[in-house]
Design a protein around this nucleic acid. Sequence first.
DNA 1: AAGACAATCAACCGCCAGTAT
DNA 2: TATACTGGCGGTTGATTGTCT
Length: 293
Amino acid sequence: MGRSPCCDKSSVKRGPWSQEEDAILRSFVERFGNAGNWIALPHKAGLKRCGKSCRLRWLNYLRPAIRHGGFTDEEDNLILSLYGEMGSKWSVIASKLPGRTDNDVKNYWNTKLKKRYLSTTREVTTPPSPAAGDDSIAAVDSPSQASSQPSPPPPPAIVNLDAPILDSTGDDNAELLHKSEQLYAELMGLIEQQSMITAAAPSTRDAATTSWSPPGTSPTASSSCDGSSMQMQWPVDVHESTVPLSSESSNSSSSSSASSLWFFDAFGGGSFQDLLGAASFDDVMLSQEMLYY
DNA sequence: AAGACAATCAACCGCCAGTAT
DNA sequence: TATACTGGCGGTTGATTGTCT
């Protein structure tokens, strides 16, 4: 009995990401983190991608402050040094290099530094350890050594959600982002208005609606945009009082992360992409009205 | 100019550990 | 306690791009 696949490979898109997909994912994650979990994110965002693929795309490419290529001599030396100490612990090595991902470091190692490392170790003639797997080039893969220099990973990048999302990838992407930003701002304004109105009315929504305010202006959100740690702290009990979910979402996501997903349910079970693709502002209004159906 | 080969890197695969149920 | 689920990681693949002949 093998483990079940994380997603239905026949129904998810694979291969290179399009600019549109990038824009949707970036906009979504910057606002909502992973929306509870990465596996559920593609559905909520309206992406036909595997959750793991979304996570990887965010962490390795879309995350703010990522740097690609152009490794400096200092970085080269640090990688070489750390590899000599701990072997192919790419995530640990990458954590010492701000803006670098483990995938980048790993690729850089395999294409460039490995040769350099091999040549230098051959000159020295005393390989650190013959037991290490990769290349048989002696990576000392010792946990004790690795932990002998405890160094906390750099803090996740903090993104100012009020600041415009900078985009350098192209006009289409920027346009899509701009569109999402506009829709988002409009929706947030509407929700805030509704919250003020309904706060006075007795309902099960009271506790939540009176305590919540939009991300960027307030919520009890610690948004690091790291993706792995970023979690919006949505108020509890909100979800239970919102509109009935679509059959699909109500079947799948009802309990565990419900409170963090109420926002999406407010779209009548639709996805983030559905919202972005709304034909007009009236569509957003309609979705908002469904919240209080 | 065109084909062969090499280099690069984004993306996927499968396993493992931690956590939730 | 057992099982299922998810995130994270390292290894690998394959498409694309660049260089050489």
